[in-house]
Amino acid sequence: MPEPLSGIVTEALRRVRRSSGVPLAFAGVLSGPSNLRLQHFAGSTVGALNGVSVDVGHGLGGKVVSLNRPMVVDDYLRTPRITHRYNTIIEREGLRAMMAAPVIVDRTPVAVLYGALHTPDPIGGRMLDVLAMEARSVEHEIVASRARLEHAAQDEAEMRDRMTAAYARLRSLADTVDDARLADELAAITEVLIAANPAAQTQVDLTGREQDVISLAALGYSNARIAETLGVTVYTVKGYMKDAMRKLGASSRLEAVVTARSAGLLP
């Protein structure tokens, strides 16, 4: 689980303890379709639970994942409602009554929140409501976090495209101006744009025209439009593209663009 989401889960567990009064709240994260790893805790623990891998369908957490709904057992060690594969660990922690609620995102369980008592006392509906509410809160936070990341990625992609467009335009201008000093200044600006790419260290050596063609292809230009922009023939563009693809080890225009950007040859 990414670090920001780990913080979300930890804060939810603290709220579970504060609102329900359980001495221990903890959480397991699904590391695969059939494995739940316990790794977040709020409250006193002897450490027996930390890092335990729970199989889906077994124990309380595994049962909750398989059912996709909250569940309560008044005495973990004796209840017939779950398997007892993890009784030894639960005994070492001195836990008895326990509740668990799944965190479900896009109809898929991603984690389980637990609350536990050291006595076999009944866990009331209010305590379970608190746990279920916090599970829903974590779900909403995960969805919101994903949306923020997607929005940030979209903004980054749009900014990258604008930089690539500026780069391609500046290279075209540098080839057309008659003033040598101005052409040098434009070329220097394109180098600054390339240097802004963290991957700017590369062993691939493209010619200026090959780089022009790749930068325009990155904007989605067709060969005909690239030819018109550069003032050359379509066949010449195809030749430059073929040479650039060979140097980049690419089998398609898209792969050439992606490889060139990864190699720091595009902003």
Results as ranks from 00 to 15, higher is better:
L49Q: 13
D55P: 00
A152H: 05
R209E: 10
L170F: 14
G7Q: 05
P109D: 11
L95N: 04
D205L: 13
V234Q: 15
T83I: 04
V46M: 07
R169H: 15
G51H: 11
A101Q: 07
R126D: 15
Y167H: 15
A111K: 04
R78K: 11
M1Y: 01
N50T: 13
R18T: 13
M159S: 15
V204Q: 07
A180G: 04
R136K: 14
E141A: 15
D106C: 07
Q203M: 00
G51P: 04
S137M: 12
G59T: 04
V112Q: 06
M159F: 13
V73Q: 05
V73Y: 03
E228H: 07
Q211I: 10
V64D: 08
T79S: 12
A188N: 05
D55Y: 00
G7R: 02
L182K: 09
L173Q: 08
D121I: 10
Y114R: 01
G249L: 02
L173A: 07
I142W: 05
E255M: 10
G239C: 02
Y221L: 14
V143N: 00
E93G: 01
L254E: 13
M133H: 10
V213Y: 11
R225G: 00
R15W: 07
P70D: 04
S215V: 03
F41G: 11
A152T: 09
T119Q: 12
E3L: 13
A132L: 01
L67E: 14
R92S: 09
L193A: 11
I90T: 10
D161E: 14
R126N: 15
E158M: 15
S6E: 15
R17M: 08
S222C: 03
L113E: 11
L216W: 10
L254K: 10
K242F: 06
D179E: 14
D178C: 06
G51Y: 09
V16H: 02
L117H: 14
I226A: 11
T207S: 15
V110I: 15
D155W: 01
A183F: 10
L38T: 06
R160F: 08
A132E: 09
L193G: 11
A165T: 03
P122D: 11
S252G: 08
G51L: 10
E210L: 08
E191L: 14
P33N: 07
H84M: 01
G231L: 02
A135Q: 02
V237C: 06
D75W: 02
